[in-house]
Design a binder for these strands. Sequence first.
DNA 1: TTTTAGTAGTGGTATAGACAACTATATTTC
DNA 2: GAAATATAGTTGTCTATACCACTACTAAAA
Lengths: 240, 240
Amino acid sequence: MLNKDLPLPLYYQIEEYLKRKIEEREFGVGELIPSERELSERFQVSRMTVRQAVTNLVNAGVLYREKGKGTFVAERKIEQPLKGLTSFTEDMRQRGMSSSSKLIAFEAMVAPGEIREKLKLKDEEEIYCVRRIRMADRKPMAIETTFMPVKLLPGLTEKIAKGSIYHYVEQELGMAISHARQMIEARAADEEQAHLLDILPQSPVLHIERSSLLSKGIPFEVVRSTYRADRYSFISDIER
Amino acid sequence: MLNKDLPLPLYYQIEEYLKRKIEEREFGVGELIPSERELSERFQVSRMTVRQAVTNLVNAGVLYREKGKGTFVAERKIEQPLKGLTSFTEDMRQRGMSSSSKLIAFEAMVAPGEIREKLKLKDEEEIYCVRRIRMADRKPMAIETTFMPVKLLPGLTEKIAKGSIYHYVEQELGMAISHARQMIEARAADEEQAHLLDILPQSPVLHIERSSLLSKGIPFEVVRSTYRADRYSFISDIER
DNA sequence: TTTTAGTAGTGGTATAGACAACTATATTTC
DNA sequence: GAAATATAGTTGTCTATACCACTACTAAAA
């Protein structure tokens, strides 16, 4: 069942096995999975190795344990995983819509005070300011303004900014965004926003400001977005 | 340093030790903590036990590891922890405001179709419907309508509904809400909402619908809230 | 019939060791 | 001096075992 020659850890292969069985409904929601001792016997690994696999899935919310009884398959939280930390591109894809962008501003500038503080930059340090209209199914969905330190994105070009910056950062630069804080407000659209989003002035809009950090807590970006309320709702899962 | 007679696991005592040292700035942000072997030597426990403690703190985001180098103290994510899953009462307390409620409806009724589906109830099953105006610093902040299965809250009274239902559920009934899904939208206030919130009709409001589950995935409540946009913004932390 | 005690099975905690993969530094070799 | 090589220290993975606490069931005792 397991391949000891593969460069993949055994506990990881066991995780994949368990997830597959759950996916295939062989282990149904609320049901017991085989005991740790039985799995270690079946896969010919030590119980500690099985335990590492099961513990990871418990932490991920896929399984839960009850002392003296066994380990059970947890209720699925999600129809779509709907990870909170996704790019606009990915967000729209998950919602089953096509996405595109219209770049309306792309410049490097000295960071204004408020942004400088949030990105923890020194005085005079430069940032990119990228302003885009985000389209879903070819209709305006949001206005998005992104501020990022120039020093973190040496090779950023206008061409990249027209697509997915997240994709560039993760695939090309190999950096990973680890967490973010968001503030969500309801506002009334001003004249400019209404014009760009093709709605009436004073229409309700969802305003989101997100500050994202790379691993080790390095501030990466501040994003201010204004979404059409009639086309967008923000969904999040909350734990504990 | 550790007490082997205490009914507390050794790994837990090591977790507390490490968190204390970080709190006291003895292990500063970004600095190396002692290696796993050194800690196991110091506390006279096996390395696996130290590893369990460190792994838990890595999962909690307090530490991060780098292979071949060591384990480091992570940047603090939070000024206030700002847990997502809090009651209105707790939410306002964290924001430094006093909270109170005005009960405007409290009744048991057969669940309408939409709510029945979300709470996974059988036909004809009854729910409580609690409608409250939520006040912060004595001014209206939100209108909140809560739907809960009667069978889960046998002793719910109007008196309790005037205060914190979450407090009653957790402290008196001993049930714990484990996770929730929220949908957040921007809307324009209708006549009734505007009147209850003391704002002008068509003012922007934040509409939040939350579905909460107890452990093991039992649906507990559906809450629909309408917040004054000029007084409230929704803040959340997102991982990975 | 009811209660009590036993027993087998579960996850929870902990040990002592082993080797692999990776990083940084020092040493040797060219 | 520069490059290749050792080596010491780190986390990553894994083993084989042990005993504890808890649950569910069974068998014996009241």
